[in-house]
Write a protein that binds this DNA or RNA. Structure first.
Lengths: 356, 356
DNA sequence: CTGAAAGCGCTTACAG
DNA sequence: CTGAAAGCGCTTACAG
């Protein structure tokens, strides 16, 4: 009698889906003993594959969390990982700014990880997802990264929310992504040049394979077409997001029989490269050549002349990403899997009417 | 008999200082029961102040960690918090780069926090230190922040290592700080201008109260004195680390009866402001005016002309800070509480011999 | 490979 | 306010 009262708590426990499933509940559901379930949770070797699979299933169905995970989740502030492929540009810094601002007001903490995607995410997405689950992370924000299906499904299985900011390739339909209105922005930039009187407008784009490049290019093409302006193949050059490509592209465009009077660059770096090379070649901007960039990074203001650009709301994009992530983390349903924030044409000194 | 074997584990436990002190050991040392010690650890109200104090003392002497803390520390990768007062400049970004690079190779994770020091650290250093201890943080790197004694002692009590990068005020002797050879750098910049033939060299410094500003100023003064060059009060202007101050300072210097032929600026932002304002005023650099900056941020290369500067090894400073922090975390003894990495004069287009 | 038994380290309810 | 007792949720050692 004394013996049995002592063990009340080891008798089969009714499944309690409500708050926090215990190992005992998982074991009951899987039809194994608590020690066996414990071994599976702790990744011990001495469990048959069949048993392990059954237990893993029960674990996932009940959404089991170890006491450590439970307590971490209860005690710790939400920790969100933010992944950059590289942190070189002020573009990244602006996004990070937005994320940090939202984090401060929402009480989240930000773990920064910086590495080429193939090192950080691709090598073993399973293990990264597992680690994040173990440590109770609130989710992952990936900035301008390349995704593959294996990575994403690993996160999905561990129920770790993922939000992509300006992903390089279109993410699967069930990943939330935040971007800007690249197509509309490209169109607005081109319309601006057309309105100034330009007819021969070239596009010096970013990488052809990257989605936002394509959208900007097609915005440009749409504007040109709607005004009945011809675009030859030589006037559209796709390359890289960098100053060197701006330098190189400008040289190529100037070799054309009828060089353009205006250039819409795929981003600000390209545009700043065009500006620098123009200065070296003695081409005055905006008198002899108008230049429009894309992004709206801080150094646009310091260039000579200051750069007309299509500004992305980079900080807002960062903030929006964090908010979307935390909503998912708290189990809310999002209105939309894809959010595009509006771009805004900022006219500065690098554009003017073409010379007569 | 049965009863007593069942309770073997509740009998007084011999103190085991070695690995992981248990609550039972803490209770024994404090001369209270385990439940009472538990209440103190969990911050319950129903403990007398006297008892609480005794238990807290035992807790700290034994270095007690809750099971959560123990497991976090064992399981989680080391998480280091990095605090910036602001993340606006590429200066910060370069340091962050260095920290991230070291973190990647040492397997640490970086939690970024960005807030003015008075909000993030000053308001309740106790609570921040407590939170960091609870969550098993490896330590704190504070970048160009202001410290006060209360903040630091809170961290010390919780045994949380702190490393300061380029602290604005001299930290207490027992805080590790990483900086650059500001005095030697200021001297080298000035020597360079003297070697080019300049005699009237002005200094447009950063905030007078900030330590690195003072060191750069005194490096400048030392170089001037060693060459027997006079320095008038009007030729040394201390202000802010920003472009606006460069603009303002240049205007003031040009109003002097005998304006300087060269300016040593307290940092690159000031120097870039001088360059921008020179352009607007039609003063050609380096023909009519030589300019030297300090820091070595990436945009120095893009200015027109490219800026001669004293480069700080910002990335190395970041890496060194993280390594020093992790060494402390692992209980190693550091060679030195203050590390100064060498600066390097980088000569570009903004300096030349004075006009004849 | 599995699980009954014992144990661990802590917390909770409650009698005093 | 304190602590003996009971309990919790898990892990460990080990018999089968």
């Amino acid at each position: 009698m004394n013996e049995s009262t002592k063990r009340v708590h080891t008798e089969p426990v009714p499944p309690n889906m409500a708050a926090k499933p215990t190992l005992a509940e998982v074991a009951a559901r899987a039809g194994v003993s608590v020690p066996t379930a414990s071994k599976v949770v702790n990744g011990r070797a001495d469990v048959s594959p069949t048993t392990r699979a059954t237990v893993v299933e029960a674990l996932e169905e009940l959404g089991y969390r170890s006491p450590l995970q439970r307590k971490n989740r209860a005690t710790q502030s939400t920790v969100v990982e933010v992944h950059f492929d590289a942190l070189g540009s002020t573009y990244s810094l602006e996004i990070l700014h937005g994320i940090m601002a939202a984090a401060a007001s929402l009480g989240a903490e930000i773990i920064l990880s910086v590495a080429p995607a193939d090192l950080a995410l691709a090598i073993s997405p399973e293990r990264r997802a597992q680690r994040m689950a173990d440590e109770g992370r609130g989710g992952l924000i990936a900035v301008t990264s390349t995704f593959d299906a294996a990575q994403l499904s690993a996160f999905r299985r561990k129920r770790i929310p993922v939000v992509a900011i300006d992903p390089l390739n279109p993410p699967p339909a069930d990943v939330v992504s935040i971007g800007a209105t690249n197509w509309a922005g490209g169109k607005a930039a081109t319309e601006h040049l057309v309105a100034l009187g330009h007819r021969r407008i070239a596009h010096l784009g970013g990488p052809e394979a990257v989605e936002c490049s394509q959208a900007r290019l097609h915005g440009y093409l749409a504007a040109m077409r709607s005004h009945g302006l011809p675009v030859t193949a030589a006037e559209v050059l796709m390359g890289e997001f960098g100053q060197d490509w701006g330098v190189e592209g400008l040289r190529r465009l100037l070799r054309l029989p009828a060089p353009p009077t205006a250039i819409f660059a795929g981003n600000d770096s390209i545009a700043l490269g065009v500006l620098a090379e123009s200065r070296r070649m003695g081409i005055t901007v905006p008198e002899s050549l108008s230049v429009v960039g894309f992004d709206g990074v801080p150094q646009d203001v310091d260039s000579a002349p200051a750069l007309t650009t299509v500004a992305q709301p980079l900080r807002d994009m960062g903030s929006a990403a964090l908010r979307a992530l935390l909503r998912q983390f708290h189990g809310e349903v999002l209105d939309s899997r894809r959010v595009e924030l509006a771009t805004r044409l900022v006219v500065r000194g690098s554009t003017a009417a073409p010379a007569r």
